[in-house]
Structures are given as C-alpha cells and as structure tokens.
Design a protein around this nucleic acid. Structure first.
Length: 657
RNA sequence: GCCGGGUUAGCUCAGAUGGCAGAGCACUUCACUUGUAAUGAAGAUGUCGCGAGUUCGAUUCUCGCACCCGGCUCCA
C-alpha cells in the first residue's frame, strides 16, 4: 500500500498508510493527545479528525483545552442543540449556530411564532445529553451546491446561506449566482439530521457534554432590524467539568460585582422610577467618590496644560446645523424645544461649543496647542432597550478635551496625550491596556487622502512608540477622522473600552477654524477629541466593578470608622475622629448602642478601609485597634503612627506613574 | 425600537382558584455596656409599579403604559 508522509509541528516526519486521518496522527503521537484531540490544522486550514490527509501535509493537532479546540467543541455542541430542537419542535427552522467567546448560540425560527421559555431550555438540554450519550459521529460530505439546495429545501435560512457561501464568497458576505462545480460541505449526525457547515467538528457527539444552556433571547436574522426576529439560545461549553464550573463561578463573581447591585448595597446612587429611564441621582456616598474622581481629573489636567471651560446644556438649533449633528446624529438627540427666539436642543456633545470658544477671536500659532477641557454633561437619546445602569445612560458627563494644534505639532501632541491618558488610568488602578486603531472607511468619510494618511500614521506611531499592543479596525473610524480607543482589563479580566483619541476633519471645516501662522497666513488647525474616562458615570461604574465596591483608600467614601467598645470610650472615639478629620480624612464614629461585633460587621459590609476600635487601653495610651479591610487586626497602634501610615498609603496610591 | 422575562415593606424574597398580604435583614423603643464579622425582647412598616376593563369584590384575570433584567439592533 502506498504511504503518505506527514510533517508534524516539531519538524519530524512520519509515514502513514494511505487514507490516514488527523485522528490517526493524534493516536500515533500519544494516547493522551488522542483523547484530547478534537480537530487538526492541515496545511494551515482547519481539518476534522476523521478526514483523510493529503500526502506531504503539515499537520498539527488541536486539543480540546486550546482556544481553537474549545471553538470546535462549542460549535459541535451548537449542532447538537439544533438537532435536539428539531426533534422537540418539529418544523423548526434554524439559521446559524456559531461558537462565541465562552460558548455558542443557535438561532431558530419556531413554527406558528412559538417562542422558547425557561422550561424549554431544560428539555432541550436533557435531549442534548441523550444525543451526546448516543455518540453520533459527525460525518462530513461535500455536495454540489445545487444538490444542497434540495437537501435544505425546507430550511429557508440555510438556502440563503448556501446562495451566499457558494460562488466563491467564502465569508458569505455576498450573494452570488451558484455556479456548476460549487460545492457545499455538510455535516451529518444521523440520516435525519444534518447541517450546513464548513467544520471542523469533533469526531462524535460523545466527546461533548460539559455544557449548559444559559438563556433565550431574540435576535434579528442577519442582524437586520427590519428583518424577522429569531429565537436565539445561548449556551456555554467547555472541555471538562472543572472548566465549566470555573466559568460558572466566574459569572457568579461578576454578578456580585455588578455596579447596579453594589450601587444599592453601598448607597452610592439610584435610578428612581419617577426620574425616567437611564437617569441617575447620586447619593452622598457616591457623590463623594465622583467628586474625588473629578477633582483628581481637574488637578491632572491643570498640571497638563489644559484650560478649563464651561458650556451650557442647551443650544440653538443653528449650532447643530453648523456642526452637522442635526443632519447626522438627530436620532441620538432629544426632541427640539420651541422657544420665542428659535429652536433649541439639549446638547449631545460638547465639541461644537468648544469650537465656538476657539473661534471667539483670532488665534495665533503662538497659542497652539490650545487644550480645552470641560466636565461637560451631555444628553443622548439612547433607545429604551439599550439602557444599562451607568454603562449606558441618557445623561452623562464627559471629561471632554478638544485640542487644537498645528499639523507639525500633532504627532508630538498625540504621543504625549497617550502618555497622559495611560498615566491617569494607572492612578485609578488599571495597568493592563490595549489599544485599537480605527482607520478610514472610504465609503463614508470627509477630509483628504493626505490628511487621513498623516493622521493615521501619527496615531500608529504614538502606539508603536509606547509599545502598547494594538489591533487595527480597518474602516472602523467614524466618518470624520481616525481614532485610537484604549481598553483596560479589570480585576477579573474583563475588557472595558474607556479612553478615546480622535482626529476631527469635519468640525474644523464646518466651523472654519483658523490660526495665523508664522508665515502670516491663515491655516486650519488640527482638531483632536479626547475623552479619558469617556463618561464619568460609566468610568465610575467600571471602577465599582473593578474594585468590587472596595475603592482604594484615597477615593473611599469613608476612609475610617471609629468604634468605641463601650459608652465610656465614646469621648475618646470622638477625639480620634476629630484628629483624623483635621488631618483631612473622611471618618465617622458609630457609638456603642449595638454590640461591637455587629458594628464591625456593618462597617465591613460597607467596605470601609479601616475600622478603628477603641477601648480602655487605647484611651489611656492614645492608641487604636486597627482592623484594616482585607487584613489582620493590629492592637495598640499609636494614633500618630496610624495617621502617618494612612497619609503614606494615600500618597502612594496617587503617586503619578 | 424588537424578542423574552420581570415589578409584593428601605433591601432580599415568599404568597394566595379572585375574598382583611408574609418572612429575614434594616428601622423604632426598651433591656444589655460589650475588645474585632450578626445580643435579646417588643413595635412600626405596603396605593402588592401606574391607569383602565371584567367582577358583588382585582395585588391576583384582560388590555394599555412606565420602569427593570437578559439579548438583538443602535452607539456620527
């Protein structure tokens, strides 16, 4: 029999009988690997374990615990779910079922507009487990596209997909005429159940099983809001029971950190029904944290060469005609208010007003870069279904800067801007950053080719100079200019997009911004938008989740609470309070009406950094029992020493990096 | 805006076929005077989200609305 030769990732070569599969390779390398193998990569493309290998192929094995392997088993689990649904709900149409981060989903269209409910999920899950127990093979077949149309005749969504993926548009982006010779791959589990799919899949359903169906949701077919709405079932799937449990545990942890929950528990802010959706009121404890954030931001901007401005919340419609917002962004704005001298709108952005400040008088190159800064509150009409705590809100405050500079200054300005942004984010406890560079969408952009190119290069060079890891979102820029978005990773690994640095080729033209150069001629400045927190409210929400409510001492609503052991120690407790307050710390006393243990517990639940217990010994020695958040109790600490340590801790937290 | 699920005391949540609405915590009072995460007793607490309809009677059923939750879409 003829032999085929395979190169393995370690560079070695092996020979196999004709017809050998990726699975045989895995088995020959080691049984442990064979057990964990779910797919292969052959000549750079994904490959099923059961597919015969071409001669001379270069093969690597994908194991279930790798990212690629999880992707395969999640997608296979989605197929099993589709099979279960078609069995349980005859007549169900199914559309797509991809693997996603942590899991998978599949979209269905049930007969007679039936929808899934929670109970259905359990039924489906049970059926899926039966199908997995049956250990059905995933059998790949290549069929001519025309034949596939017959095979999926009663699956309209599949037909549409076949029409799109055949004819060479492999990513399915375009509808193409089906040509003779186009083939479609199909994976079959049983004579009755098969699904359109490019693969690969695990060899058989018995390899699956560590999964859980999570939720039902509506989802538009092909993401088109005007199109039909399908029923989507989300699930999570993992290579082992331990990995699944760990994932579910992570979700629980994330839920405990939910800023909306913590905001209530810690009495920080609320969203009263009477106020309307997406609008918050800040309670004293939330307000003090916010004030500290804003004060810190102001201080840094003051030191960073920014000039502070204030602008109103309302503006005449003319302003937004000039800026173009009414033409481009009207659906994001609140309805107009007719007043005696014209039509007014709540401002959705601060930029136009900052442009007005810029052009309030003639500008010289000598005053550039001009950096305007405002904590500017804007109002945007967010659709009702999109509101989400502080993360998506209808009135919010941007820490908004607009920087006007010359073209020559721009690269340096952007580089130092990036420094500034990262330095401030570090002060708030983030140190894991990544960036995204969004470039021009040629179909939807203003400005010149040269302008876009220079701007994109300036942004990219700043990123490179920083050594900041970044991805490029090709064509992802807004029409008015390229941008850098900064994402941070929080304490439990979630990514949040916060800061943004954007060029604006639009407003400087619309407002005809100018400066007089050294050559005594008029020039257009470069205009940059920059938000650092993004929205103060959202940033607060992210911080709240990042710290799980335990704000670092410098920004904790209360930094210490003094608890007298008994009434006899009350006077001393108040003396300690007065001392700390004089030193500029936020502190209170809870007198001895409740048991000490109960008062300590309450303070701990409030996540106060230091609980200070004072009793007989302390009164005579001027000391404290110090119970730090997340640390061990220390008795008989001299008050002076505690004050010094507290000061040092706060200073250290705010040390600029 | 769309699909699905919700809204009961300050909080977390029970509850009834349509017949005076419950618990724990929190709160108030009293007793206890406490040394590092829940002392005991007593008490008060509700337009059962809002508005219509059906009904002898609606917190419960129906409809509309508001708000919330999970997605989708959107976020120049």
């Amino acid at each position: 029999m003829e032999q085929i030769t395979i190169s393995l990732p370690d560079g070695s070569q092996r020979s196999y009988d004709q017809g050998a599969t990726t699975g045989d390779v895995a088995a020959s390398i080691g049984s442990r690997l064979a057990k964990a193998a779910v797919a292969g990569v052959v000549n750079g493309a994904e490959w099923d374990l059961g597919r015969p290998l071409p001669n001379g192929a270069s093969v690597s094995i994908v194991t279930a615990d790798s990212d690629d392997g999880r992707h395969v088993l999640r997608h296979s689990t989605a197929h099993v779910m589709a099979q279960a649904v078609t069995q349980l709900f005859p007549g169900a149409k199914f559309s797509i079922g991809p693997a996603i981060e942590d899991g998978f989903y599949y979209d269905f269209d049930l007969p007679d507009g039936r929808t899934f409910n929670e109970g259905d999920l359990q039924t489906i899950e049970a059926r899926m487990r039966e199908l997995m127990k049956a250990d059905q093979p995933f059998v790949r077949a290549e069929v001519p596209a025309a034949e596939a149309l017959t095979l999926f005749a009663d699956q309209p969504y599949k037909l549409e997909i076949i029409e799109r993926v055949s004819g060479g548009a492999a990513d399915g982006s375009d509808v193409a005429e089906i040509q003779a010779g186009d083939t479609i791959s199909v994976y079959r589990n049983t004579p009755e159940f098969f699904d359109l799919c490019k693969g690969p899949h695990v060899p058989s359903t018995g390899r699956l099983g560590h999964f859980k169906l999570m939720k039902v949701a509506g989802a538009y077919w092909r993401g088109n809001e005007k199109g039909p709405m399908l029923q989507r079932i989300y699930g999570t799937a993992w290579e082992s029971k331990a990995a699944l449990e760990e994932h579910l545990h992570r979700l629980e942890e994330a839920e405990k950190r939910d800023h909306r929950k913590l905001a209530v528990e810690l009495d920080l802010l609320s969203f009263p029904h009477e106020l309307g959706g997406g609008l918050a009121v800040w309670h004293p404890k939330g307000a003090i944290v916010r004030k500290l954030m804003e004060d810190y931001s102001r201080e840094r901007h003051e030191n960073g060469g920014y000039q502070f401005v204030f602008t109103p919340h309302l503006a005449n419609a003319n302003l937004f005609h000039t800026s173009g917002h009414l033409e481009w962004y009207a659906e994001g704005m609140y309805p107009p208010m007719e007043m005696d001298n014209g039509t007014y709108y709540m401002k959705p952005m601060n930029c136009p007003m900052h442009c007005l400040i810029y052009r309030s008088r003639q500008r010289s190159y000598r005053e550039l870069p001009l950096r305007l800064y405002e904590l500017g509150t804007v109002y945007r009409y967010e659709r009702a279904g999109t509101l989400h705590g502080l993360m998506r809100i209808r009135g919010f405050t941007q820490d908004d800067s607009h920087i006007f500079c010359t073209e020559e200054q721009a690269p340096e300005e952007i580089a130092s801007l990036l420094d500034f942004v990262l330095s401030v984010l570090r002060a708030f406890g983030f140190d894991d950053f990544e960036a995204m560079l969004s470039t021009r969408d040629p179909d939807k952009s203003v400005g010149t080719d040269e302008g876009w190119e220079a701007a994109t290069i300036a942004l990219e060079q700043a990123l490179v100079r920083h050594g900041l890891p970044y991805t490029v979102d090709q064509g992802g820029a807004a029409f008015y200019g390229p941008k850098i978005d900064i994402k941070v990773r929080d304490a439990i690994g979630r990514k949040w997009q916060l800061s943004t640095i954007q060029y604006d080729f639009n407003l400087k033209e619309r407002f005809e911004l100018e400066y007089v150069g050294a050559d005594n001629a008029r020039h257009r400045p470069i205009m940059l938008h920059r938000a650092l927190f993004g929205s103060v409210e959202r940033f607060f929400g992210v911080l709240l989740e990042h710290y799980a409510g335990a704000f670092p001492t410098w920004m904790a609503p209360l930094q210490a609470r003094v608890l007298p052991v008994a009434e006899a120690h009350q006077q001393y407790a108040h003396a300690v309070e007065a001392r700390l307050r004089n030193e500029g710390f936020r502190v209170d006393v809870v007198e001895a009406s409740d048991q000490l243990g109960k008062r300590i517990r309450a303070a701990k639940l409030d996540k106060i950094p230091y609980v200070l217990v004072v009793g007989d010994n302390d009164v005579s020695a001027n000391t404290l029992g110090v119970n730090p958040r997340g640390g061990d109790v220390e008795r008989d600490v001299p008050l002076d020493m505690f004050v010094a340590n507290l000061r040092a801790e706060v200073d250290q937290q705010l040390a600029v990096s």
